[in-house]
Design a binder for these strands. Structure first.
Lengths: 226, 226
DNA sequence: CGGAGACTTGATCTGAGTCAAGGGGAGTGG
DNA sequence: CCACTCCCCTTGACTCAGATCAAGTCTCCG
């Protein structure tokens, strides 16, 4: 039996290594992982995978922000959700063995770590725990969906926009003299899609947020006053 | 090595045996399953598990209809969804190792097949495929949630009620001279919860359905004219 | 008989969708 | 450099579905 203990785990330097789906990989499976593992830098707007494309592996968002879109037949596309650093994307398609039902696009310069499909399969044979980790991600996705349904039914659009901005501020915000500020990584139309409302309505919601709350919003510049 | 080939699979006579999460169980794991396996008859209104209760295993709906409810702090409860025959319930709590977040209640006389938690764990050690089957159920749950979100955003309440009645009719309907008829297994309030609308609104939606479509509805008696 | 829910009906209010118009910025071509 | 266009975004007027509030009926059950 070879000794693999000198081999470094590819997630070793990542801030999300403890939650990584690859965390349980060790021993003989580790060189498989390191061989297949690839860090992909993504420029803003770059598409990671297209809707309808065959699954080529699973991706973990390491840095930046990825938008998950659904592309309708008539060319329109709708932003369904955001994938933040630490999230795994493409696993639904991987596990179901079906083409991607959505498109993934970097909304800001980002980096994802990719493991190709056949490598995942190989590792899974040796590391049964991996399937458990992926199942955990499924559960998280279920919880997220349920929370989304509840929020849509019980919270006002203003509250939900405020929640979203807060979330984005945690990732992209910078401290300044007046408070925390950021440049919105997405357009108004995408913002409206995320909340499930029309762009006109979003525009009014933003105006209400600015007039009532501690927000100053101009174009894509957002300031939450301290 | 003992021969277990004479041992009958507990799902052998079930109409859902091919899709059963237990289908891959064989060999030495089979007697574990048959020992732990239990068919529970449920009377109408009987509670299968309570919200907040520790998970005691996973259940497969074999017959009838199970309502999944969320109980609020103030005593109010909301019907979140229906579990039809063939569906597995309680697995989210099982896989996450957390107490049930919802309550399960039989809405009509029903039967569920139960496998206790420790038995599932034992079988899982010997039958890694079981985890894959459970993960498939997770994926189905994700798809159901997504479909729910889409439907809520794009279909009218009348259409959604019509869809729901059609679904229920497939399970509980009987052919009669004028068309298919059934006795609704749930109250108007529960019906309203399922659609995410107020009971008053549901009442009007029902009235619209009767006046516009092929429906005759009186109390809980529903007739879809042929 | 009386009370409690479940359900319906009516009147009114309101938030969001729709339609229409216009401002403003970025890119393009003359 | 300017005019033009396209797209994103905003604003206003109108409409409408559903929520809310209130009242009344019905049934079940003690």
């Amino acid at each position: 039996m070879r000794d693999y203990s000198d081999l470094k785990h590819p997630c070793g330097n990542c801030g999300f290594r403890d939650q990584s789906v690859w965390q349980p990989v060790s021993g003989a499976a580790l060189p498989m992982l390191t061989r297949g593992f690839d860090r992909l830098p993504l420029s803003s707007g770059q598409v990671l995978f297209e809707q309808g494309e065959e699954n080529s592996g699973i991706y973990c968002v390491s840095k930046g922000l990825i938008g998950i879109r659904s592309r309708q037949g008539d060319g329109k596309s709708t932003l369904l959700r955001l994938a933040y650093p630490g999230e795994v994307i493409g696993f639904r398609s991987f596990m179901a063995g079906q083409p991607h039902q959505t498109e993934a696009q970097a909304l800001v310069p980002s980096r994802v770590c990719m493991v190709p499909r056949h490598t995942v399969r190989q590792i899974m044979d040796r590391t049964p725990e991996l399937l458990g980790r992926l199942a955990d991600r499924c559960l998280q996705e279920i919880d997220r969906s349920h929370a989304h349904i509840i929020a849509a039914a019980t919270r006002s659009n203003t509250e939900r926009l405020s929640d979203l901005l807060e979330r984005l501020m945690q990732i992209h915000g910078e401290q300044s003299a007046e408070g925390r500020r950021m440049t919105l990584p997405i357009s108004r139309i995408d913002l409206a899609d995320l909340l499930g409302i029309r762009p006109e309505t979003l525009s009014r919601v933003v105006a209400r947020l600015v007039s009532d709350g501690p927000y100053t919003i101009s174009g894509r510049e957002v300031l939450i006053k301290a």
